[in-house]
Amino acid sequence: MTPLSYRFDVYKVKNLPIFPGALFKSNGESYDILSIVNPMFHLDEMVYRQNGGVHLSTSDLLQRGSSSQHFGFATLTATIFDERDLWRQTKTAFKGYKKMDIHMKHMKYKFVPTWWFVFILVSNIGLVLFTCQYYNESLQLPWWGVLVACAIAFFFILPIGIIAATINQAPGLNIFTEYVIGYLCPKLLVANSFKVYGYIIMTQALTFVSDFKIGHYMKIPPQSMFMAQVSDGNTCGSFGVHHNCMVAHGKIPHVCDTSLLLPDSPWTCPMGRVFFDVSVIWGFVGPRRIFGTKGEYSNVDWFFLSGAVAPLLVWLAHNAYPNKQWIHLIHMPVLLGSTAMMPPATTVNFRSRFIISFVSGYIIFKYRLDW
């Protein structure tokens, strides 16, 4: 779709590079974000109108659309194909029922008390609420935004967890949370930290459970796993990341500044630049001025609807032709989920991943299984 959109000049994208992760003016020049930021880190609407709106490249637009589709694919697929598992897991979770598999029967260790999890949950939410309230001028996120982000993560963790357990891919809540905060708190640059709380809470929870599952199979005591993850993984990891960032900014000249770095420099910080662009699009300028009624990319919102309709069509086809087993193998989150990292990933990463997966997962598995 990217070459076709570029070929037919959809949204006048020929004025822009076809595949960068950046923001542009309508003539293809890089957008000077600092020029539209006022001293309070709010959007200067007068300067923004003078400069013109933010424009996205073809690949960026399609990536936003495919991410929207992926969210619809994941939620509806889990709802219509795994509704029994959803309901059963929800009931057993609240009843505290623990299914005894063969690994659990062999383990003679104590379980992790529920209050350990509750304590970490309540204390962390309390710390986040205090931080956002006390440093509100800097963080810009109101206290109720934290609660909304937590509610979103809690609501979607089970259906997305089922998808992750089925296909080993966990669809993110990044686009959904960005839309929500973009409409609730427009014109705020830093308030997009809402995405971190809504998206990362769910991602970290699923990673936490996945690590626990590995430890379960390896017969590691659950309480030891818990303490290792909390103390070593989270605490030490947080300080380690912070220390590395401080060292990088202090020792590496022009780190992350692509305009001043050498062309072959590895210190371009692609994930950081993507996160900044996302903060500008969804938090600072706001989705209404780009993808809403005031923007020229409003048709991208139709990807949400297509993402919800596509799994329904597969479900209807499967019910209409129950003997056709191949229909049930059509899994929409798998088809487009791999594009979630574009950008900063490029088409080179995508093509190489497809080729290696096809060769190893189909050709070798079918014709050289003894390998």
Score class of each variant (00 low, 15 high):
341 M>A: 14
104 M>Q: 14
133 Q>M: 03
310 A>F: 10
132 C>I: 06
25 K>F: 08
98 K>A: 12
293 T>E: 11
149 A>R: 04
122 V>I: 14
166 T>D: 15
107 M>L: 09
147 L>V: 14
278 V>Q: 08
352 S>A: 06
9 D>L: 08
8 F>Q: 03
223 Q>N: 09
230 V>Y: 07
62 L>W: 09
290 I>M: 10
217 Y>N: 03
220 I>D: 02
10 V>P: 00
225 M>S: 06
2 T>P: 00
295 G>N: 08
220 I>P: 03
16 L>I: 03
52 G>D: 11
352 S>G: 01
254 H>I: 01
302 W>P: 01
87 W>L: 14
229 Q>I: 03
292 G>S: 07
73 F>H: 14
159 P>L: 11
322 P>H: 07
115 W>H: 11
217 Y>H: 07
21 G>D: 15
344 P>Y: 06
320 A>E: 03
176 F>M: 13
300 V>W: 09
235 T>F: 15
128 V>F: 05
133 Q>R: 09
39 P>C: 02
138 S>Y: 11
50 Q>M: 13
196 V>D: 01
148 V>D: 01
150 C>G: 00
53 G>W: 07
370 D>P: 00
59 S>M: 14
368 R>S: 07
72 G>R: 05
343 P>K: 09
121 L>V: 03
353 R>I: 00
276 F>L: 10
340 A>F: 13
349 N>R: 01
237 G>E: 12
2 T>V: 15
315 W>Y: 15
57 S>K: 02
141 L>A: 04
316 L>N: 00
139 L>D: 01
153 A>G: 06
275 F>I: 08
34 L>R: 10
323 N>Y: 10
